[in-house]
Design a protein around this nucleic acid. Sequence first.
DNA 1: TTGAAAGCGCTAACAG
DNA 2: CTGTTAGCGCTTTCAA
Lengths: 335, 335
Amino acid sequence: MGKTTGKATRNDVANLANVSTAVVSYVFNNGPRNVSPQTAQKVRDAAAKLHYQPNSIARALRTGNSKTLGAVINDFTNPFALSIYEKLEMMAAEKGYSMLFATSHSELQKEKAVIKELMNRNVEALFISPCENVTLFTPSNENCRLVIFDIDRKVPNVSTIATDYTKAVQLGMSHLFKHGHTNIAMIIGQSSNGISDGRINGWYQAFKNEGLPAGHIEHTEFSRIGGYKAMLKILDLKDRPTAIFAGSDLIALGALRALHERHIRVPEEIAIISFDGSIDSQYTYPELTVIQQNPQEIARLALEAAIGPNSKPTRHLLEAKLVIRQSCGCNMKTQ
Amino acid sequence: MGKTTGKATRNDVANLANVSTAVVSYVFNNGPRNVSPQTAQKVRDAAAKLHYQPNSIARALRTGNSKTLGAVINDFTNPFALSIYEKLEMMAAEKGYSMLFATSHSELQKEKAVIKELMNRNVEALFISPCENVTLFTPSNENCRLVIFDIDRKVPNVSTIATDYTKAVQLGMSHLFKHGHTNIAMIIGQSSNGISDGRINGWYQAFKNEGLPAGHIEHTEFSRIGGYKAMLKILDLKDRPTAIFAGSDLIALGALRALHERHIRVPEEIAIISFDGSIDSQYTYPELTVIQQNPQEIARLALEAAIGPNSKPTRHLLEAKLVIRQSCGCNMKTQ
DNA sequence: TTGAAAGCGCTAACAG
DNA sequence: CTGTTAGCGCTTTCAA
């Protein structure tokens, strides 16, 4: 028996089955050498009797493949981001990968530390979903692929996966214009490092296309409380907008709370369109009309970039779609 | 240089510093032998020059301690559960532990598989937060401590951490009674295996104390959609209740949606008290009065049970507190 | 205070 | 088809 763990090792199995340790490996790995059916069965019987389980740590050390992926998450209470990771974990598990998670709390310092820690644990790829503090710390590590969410620009040696924000925002804005709104404000998290968010480009583009002066942009955090505070500020504007474009569902949640506190009816007095299309957006009052991203596809592409055969960094830009519910003014229920 | 990874190894450092590999270990581990300050500095210089990082996999193999914890999560979009794991991860990271996450999707079969997979990866402890399919599969593994959330009963060889549901529900119910409600219904997830949820005990106890016949219990899933469907059923009851006790915030979210769809005013026509006190409960309309659990303390105790020096399984029962907001009928705003 | 060396459990090249 | 064996990077006992 193995000494440190008290668990059966490959050696124990080999002894019991009267074969060499190599054969045990061949059986468990289906290669690289063939084993006769009878011998293989002997090995499997012995393994079963001993409740043998291969030690993944030893295997990782030997092969250099940890079969582990890392994820740095900055907000565990963001259902949209987490839904991506949930799918990612499931698809990764099917391929024999496990996922290590760490929290950055949107602090750049912390983010650096956890990235380092994760890399020390030999993750084969690292998923990062930067929030306002978009990471500029992309350590080069030939053994670890990097895939970053939510940046639709090119980063050297890194795969990026994002929704086409510019286009997506215009999709939402044109819907708002159709409702007759001309005074619209946007609430969005800030890129503390000056990287322009595609949502902002789309914002200006939308007004330009409409021949309208661009509306007010309120910068805040990408969070519920951020949306709340920003909405409060907007309500104090001299020329109060009649519609809001929320940069994320979390922001919309906060905005909605501010609106309710001030007894402002949505969508009658102020309409809202939000961005993400998380499950939360279906359980607000009123239900949110959203620009919906595709978490399933994001996860699929992310995994491919992480462990796919093609090791070249990729860059994906996905389409979003408009999901009409109530907060925009459509589907209004007669009270 | 190490062959497989292209990264510097302890050997490279030893060579450059002109010391033995053992000394490098002593320096990086602060023991078990002393090293003279000069030598130690030489080692650190060499390590810095080579960007040496200890290989945690090799260390894990050698010591038998993976410094890794596992968590099986069944719903990534449950902010309450995730807030516990977020805190857990942070506290674990401080102690040098990383966390492996896996999804069970509340499927018992999947849960078994991921528990096995996590254990094969030599996690030192495993956190499980069973939902309706309370796990009865608690594999004994002397190398892996088990800590289970949300079960307030004794399980052999397992640490359990839960809020005192029985007491907590009574706390909420007495508040509802104070508001004058007598016809109250409860929506709660079902324990598919017949284990009675403390919330149900508390429910009956509360009515008994009040000398009232127990209200209707609607069983459903512990999810937004579950709450929604259950609320719809309750609204079709002949004797429609005037108040709802929701077994979780997610259930309350769904119930609220059903209520809004039917144009039933909360709390005027139907009041709600919910259970958890997640961040979501502050962003509903109206804001939810909740029985609030203490995720920080839950996380602290869970980590202690997982990696604390005392290896005996523990059992903790925590207090919850009533947080009064609007959905119960208090703090009503003049419209 | 330092070094030599065994060995954690596994894989795979090589030999038979 | 099967066995022998070196060695992944590290820790730690034992000897110096």
